[in-house]
Design a binder for these strands. Structure first.
Length: 547
RNA sequence: GCGCCAGUAGCUCAGUUGGAUAGAGCAACGGCCUUCUAAGCCGUCGGCCGGGGGUUCGAAUCCUCCCUGGCGCACCA
């Protein structure tokens, strides 16, 4: 019953009847200017070449037939050959019935058709607490998971734990250094180590659990520090993510890849297919065959495998788990890594199934002044601190208001402000306002009307229709967000819905209206509140009932 | 030097599988609370869409060459 769907079915039928083929690039969408009607189609222009006729003439043919549709009030032809449709008022009014009937399910799609899709995100090394940059990736990944589920995909969220390799060794050494310091041993400062206060706290715990740690070998001591450090930090990461409303279904360990022999398996597979080769005492992957700039080393001449080697094995493992699509969310500073990872996925027979989303850096500011961040130097603003200060809702909405691949200034003072520079409150306020109305309505024994044609017919002002048209578009917003893997589309939609609601609120009084009209308007507003809450839930932002 | 991403109103940004006169918010200025939350609404001002060429009925969007900014270019992770 949605306008776009209805018109597309009709237009496809007419095009077929005329012996033409539906052009894949044809779109039906609301025009940017209301004067062009409710929905606009470019199909006549797209058909020009195929039909060997002038676009406007094709448009005439189509318009004549389209006028027979009982839900189409008028069809105009404009510009180079646009077909502009105005739907009947009662068509739009039915929207309220559909939204009310479907409730929370409104906006759910069958786009994904149950396909298995994995979203891997955050995946920060367990060497320190999450900082604000991780927060952006976390918000994006979690929201994307919610959107893809809504769109009908079978989605699994995963965190890849880099619990093997050099970074973990440095973590162990950093803690051991602090342990010795606490014991007043005046240890030599390691060349490269994590300097944050949390390392000292972990060192305290280590000493408490292993008072005799320094009696054993250096290796054993480092191993103990590493293990306690990692589990402590990982627990902290889990807590911080939970407080931020972010969930992962699977925590996948890099160590387990090696232990299960998956890396070796990858090596022999590549060797067998001729895509791996020995040179200069190292083992290489011929990634240049798949568009990468150069070949890459998987096993160094000193015998260690590279990070890339386990990453190939990891992705191989993902595809073997049956995912049709694998989404990786990475920091934009890793963009140089994309071509080789794509090459690897192609080499192991999964071309085009990896989608990499790059999340650009977050510049943390306070009152316009930058706050420097570096895990190593131990000076950073943690995600936890930021969430504690500004709230999870405001932080998430800020992260999800912009395209992920452009840089983001995150000003702590700004995000606390209640202005349109910080639109989370604007959207939440729309929801709270409606809830407040509903409470007042109950006090005076008024309640939303049932979706009868008589009740719906009372929703006949331009303000009513503006809201109804926007509600009708919600599933399109979900679809666009899912297809584009772009949660910010939901955020933009919500701002527009909130804006239209606030305008309605100012112009159309509800509780003072005559009883039937009041009930009809309550019905409409209940639908709006439902869709606002629905959309906010896709962003992982709460919909408060009062503010 | 090579590559990727960005450059749209004073500011922050939408809009980019080519569509109609390029949109919001903020800021500035001017209005609206004796009725449901003013965290709101209405109005005015504001643009060679970084620049030059090209492709076509039509370009912010595609191609090409420049300019500016960010980030990458390891037998690091």
């Amino acid at each position: 019953m949605r306008a776009k769907q209805h018109l597309e079915e009709m237009l496809r039928r007419i095009v077929t009847e005329n012996g033409w083929e539906w052009p894949e690039k044809a779109v039906i969408e609301p025009p940017k200017d209301k004067q062009f009607g409710d929905m606009s189609a470019n199909v006549a222009m797209m058909l020009a070449k195929q039909a060997k006729k002038a676009p406007r003439q094709i448009a005439e043919d189509i318009a004549e037939k389209a006028r027979n549709d009982s839900f189409v009030a008028s069809v105009d032809i404009a510009g180079p050959g646009f077909l502009n449709f105005t739907m009947t008022t009662d068509f739009w009014q039915k929207t309220a019935g559909i939204v009310a009937e479907q409730g929370d399910a409104y906006g759910s799609l069958s786009l994904g058709d149950g396909k298995k899709i994995q979203v891997e995100y955050v995946s920060a090394n367990p060497t320190g607490p999450l900082h604000i940059g991780h927060g952006r990736g976390a918000a994006l990944g979690d929201s994307l998971v919610r959107i893809l589920k809504k769109a009908g995909y079978n989605v699994e969220a995963e965190y890849y734990v880099n619990d093997a390799g050099r970074q973990m060794l440095i973590l162990g050494q950093s803690i051991l250094y602090r342990v010795r310091q606490i014991q007043n041993l005046n240890p030599a400062e390691p060349e490269d180590y994590y300097k944050g206060d949390y390392i000292r706290e972990i060192a305290d715990d280590v000493l408490e659990q292993h008072p005799d740690i320094l009696d054993g070998t250096e290796e054993d001591a480092t191993e103990i520090c590493k293990s306690i450090g990692m589990s402590t930090i990982l627990d902290g990461i889990r807590e911080d993510l939970m407080a931020f409303g972010v969930h992962h279904d699977v925590w996948f360990s890099e160590k387990s890849l090696v232990a299960d022999g998956m890396v070796d398996e990858t090596f022999s597979d590549l060797r067998a297919s001729g895509l791996g080769f020995e040179k200069d005492n190292a083992f290489w992957f011929k990634s240049s065959d798949f568009g990468d700039d150069k070949d890459r080393v998987l096993r160094k001449s000193n015998g260690d495998t590279t990070y890339f080697a386990s990453d190939i094995a990891y992705h191989d493992n993902k595809f073997k788990r049956g995912f049709d699509v694998v989404v990786d969310i990475w920091g934009a500073d890793h963009h140089g890594y994309v071509p080789r990872m794509q090459a690897a996925c192609e080499a192991i027979g999964n071309k085009g199934k990896l989608h990499v989303i790059l999340v650009n850096l977050v510049n943390l500011l306070r009152d316009g002044k930058p706050i420097a961040m570096s895990t190593r130097a131990g000076q950073f603003e943690t995600l936890k601190d930021v969430v504690d200060e500004v709230g999870a809702d405001a932080a998430r909405f800020m992260f999800l208001s912009r395209k992920s691949d452009s840089g983001l200034d995150f000003d702590l003072e700004l995000v606390k402000q209640k202005t349109m520079d910080n639109p989370v409150y604007y959207v939440q306020y729309a929801h709270a306002r409606i809830c407040s109305l509903m409470r007042k309505a109950r006090e005076q024994q008024a309640q939303p009307a049932d979706c009868t044609p008589e009740a719906l017919a009372l929703l006949n002002t331009e303000h009513d229709l503006d809201l109804l048209r926007l509600l009708d578009r919600y599933p399109d917003a979900v679809e666009a967000a899912a297809r584009g893997e772009s949660p910010h589309i939901i955020s933009i939609y919500l701002r527009e819905l909130a804006s239209t609601l606030h305008r309605y609120y100012t112009n159309c009084h509800v509780l003072s209206a005559e009883a039937d009209l009041c009930a009809a308007r309550l019905l409409l507003l209940a639908c709006v509140a439902g869709v606002v809450a629905n959309g906010l839930s896709l962003l992982g932002v709460s919909a408060p009932e009062r503010m």
